[in-house]
Design a protein around this nucleic acid. Sequence first.
DNA 1: TCCATACTTCGACCGTAGCCGAAGCATCTC
DNA 2: GAGATGCTTCGGCTACGGTCGAAGTATGGA
Lengths: 232, 232
Amino acid sequence: MKEGPDIAQIGALIGDPARANMLAALTGGKALTATELAAVGGITLQTASAHLSKLEAGGLLLPRKQGRHRYFTLADETVARLIESMMGFAASRGHLRHQPGPKEPALRKARICYDHLAGDYGVRMLDSLVARGAIDAIGDGVALSAKGEETFQCIGINVADLKASRRPLCRSCLDWSERRAHLAGSLGKALLANFFDKGWARRTAGSRSVIFSPDGERQFLALFPVETPVAA
Amino acid sequence: MKEGPDIAQIGALIGDPARANMLAALTGGKALTATELAAVGGITLQTASAHLSKLEAGGLLLPRKQGRHRYFTLADETVARLIESMMGFAASRGHLRHQPGPKEPALRKARICYDHLAGDYGVRMLDSLVARGAIDAIGDGVALSAKGEETFQCIGINVADLKASRRPLCRSCLDWSERRAHLAGSLGKALLANFFDKGWARRTAGSRSVIFSPDGERQFLALFPVETPVAA
DNA sequence: TCCATACTTCGACCGTAGCCGAAGCATCTC
DNA sequence: GAGATGCTTCGGCTACGGTCGAAGTATGGA
């Protein structure tokens, strides 16, 4: 029968635990070396090298040589979206990890999805922006509203600059922990970068989770309030 | 590191060629028996049985016993969406099947995606509905517009009935051949069913492709015209 | 009751893919 | 140049998963 594109290839690529761990780690957005990825996968460097070759050949990873290091990143935002959507699906089917672990709550609260904010805080931010009228949303679709530009100007983001890029300004990305959309695209990226610049939050060393400072958290929550439901 | 849900499991599930073929076939929307799926996968019945058990245990398939047959369907619309999105991704990375084959064009033109119309015609239909103002769209998001209900009434679809169901009325689904959105959800399903009822089109036996009758095709194209670009 | 059909289970076979130790390049530092 | 570090390649081992033949269970029909 063999109809359409070959999903088995990429399924198999993602289907190996070591490779899946590497991909999940790279969804954190940072470029990682082969050695680091070997540690993530829990395998030796030789084995990791073979895995990375396969992922690269499959078009999932992009290597960048820098001195004697080889840094790997996800090839594309679409790869990140695929991984996240598979995580969402896996979570919905109960394919969870054996140990929820202490890092799990932090991950659900705020984490990096490729280059933008995800988790509870990511979803909250989008909700708040929609409620405020800065972003229009229909279903899973999102777009900058007419009056949105000035909102972001206040936050400290020049939307005009972002529009110059070929990359879509607004994209919705399904959050695996919240099962709702958060904001991706160049605007999502700019917002997260903005939080880092202001010192509101920082990345963590070996994880995808984002840690807010006490003060940063206060300001973030104030900037993106959630509507208090007055009437059901 | 082991962060988040386990994508390796479902990756591995989809990663086997026989299983992938079965899943792709089931994306055609029809329930198929174990014997039929064995043929699709190009394997014996025993092997297929083992595969189907795994897919069922993984939550991808739903079995239904009927007499001495066991019919399988995709567990959920979300499974269909995952498969389609993986097909889109695979196509974008050039992971195509070795033989494009004669059926390929028909598949690109019009096919069933779980229960709604996909392919060139599916995308055209959504475009036309949006241009006409029956459906609002922002990015990938879609929703029935205020004046949309009467449009569908004219076609012969009672939207009020559909709203009674818990299933979302409008959903966008990314088309792997066109790389653009087509209409899913209960409204997408109702439209396709409507075409079948009117005799405009019919399913094919062993494939996902949808065949329009000459007359049906004419009426379909008339009902869903595409805007002729007057000015760039 | 008896047989045919649909499917599952069992057991054994086999190939592939993952794995690592050891050796080989490449690149940086001193 | 010598030595350390990062990574790749090679070779061989192992195990897991896919495969099928044969036998076993369920259902339907005559």
